[in-house]
């Protein structure tokens, strides 16, 4: 069947559909429905929470290093936590900006590319939280113990601090080695067995969408 012949079938179906189906105009007016159905709503909410947590953490960490600016190790703990909080804030703000820049009234290729880029970026950024987390739990724990019990572990139990730091370093090195291994050809089997991992599969899907959009744009152009 030629594409032109298909128009007849398509138009015939059209006429019957208009008779059979009515548009429920009331549904779009429901604000709760609009919010719940918004496709990027879960992502938006997650980033707003991340922003709020980041701001709260930054405020607390900032007051911490300022208060202890005469004591080097306490000041350093506060600065590290402050940096971690700023990472939360910057990444959340960037993602919120990307989400708000999605205007469905723009041409289809523009928006589909932007959505795929957003997805790919999120997935690439996710390991950075893991990497930072490998290290940041140490100052967070030290500050927490000091706040709760008034005990400065660096001064009074340096061997404990050394143990914690060694654990943090081992965690970081282990994660970096793992990420590097999965990119190596010998790690292909491991990478394939991790295919069930949501982040890896989502990234491949996001990248495949970008490739498809690029092919569609260039093919015949």
């Amino acid at each position: 069947m030629e594409l032109d012949e298909m128009k007849l079938a398509w138009q015939a179906m059209d006429r019957r559909l208009e008779q059979r189906f009515a548009l429920d105009l009331a549904a779009y007016r429901d604000r709760r429905l609009a919010t719940a159905r918004r496709q990027l709503w879960p992502l938006w909410l997650g980033q707003v929470l991340q922003l709020v947590i980041g701001i709260a953490l930054a405020w607390w960490a900032g007051s911490l290093w300022y208060e202890h600016r005469a004591t080097l190790h306490l000041w350093l703990q506060g600065v590290l936590l402050h940096g971690y909080a700023l990472m939360f804030i910057v990444l959340a703000a960037r993602e919120l900006h990307l989400i708000h820049s999605v205007d469905y009234a723009e041409p289809v290729l523009v928006i589909q590319r932007r959505l795929a880029q957003l997805r790919a970026w999120r997935i690439r950024v996710a390991p950075w939280f893991g990497i930072a987390g490998c290290v940041m739990w140490v100052p967070l724990l030290l500050v927490g113990v000091e706040a709760a019990f008034g005990a400065d572990l660096v001064l009074h139990a340096p061997q404990v601090v050394a143990f914690l730091a060694a654990n943090g370093a081992a965690c970081l090195l282990g994660l970096l080695a793992f990420l590097r291994w999965t990119r190596h050809p010998r790690g292909a089997r491991l990478a394939a067995s991790l295919d069930q991992h949501a982040a890896g599969r989502s990234l491949r899907r996001a990248q495949a969408e970008l490739d498809e959009i690029l092919r569609f744009e260039q093919d015949g152009g």
Binding site: D24, Y28, A34, R38, Y104
Partner: peptide, 27 residues
């Protein structure tokens, strides 16, 4: 329903000088 919802949300930004069908198809 989701399409209708997005159309309504975007309607405030619709420029009446432009074709409504084009705008609607995009969304």
């Amino acid at each position: 329903q989701e399409i209708c919802t997005q159309l309504w949300r975007a309607f405030a930004g619709y420029d009446a000088q432009r074709s409504f069908s084009t705008w609607m198809y995009r969304i």
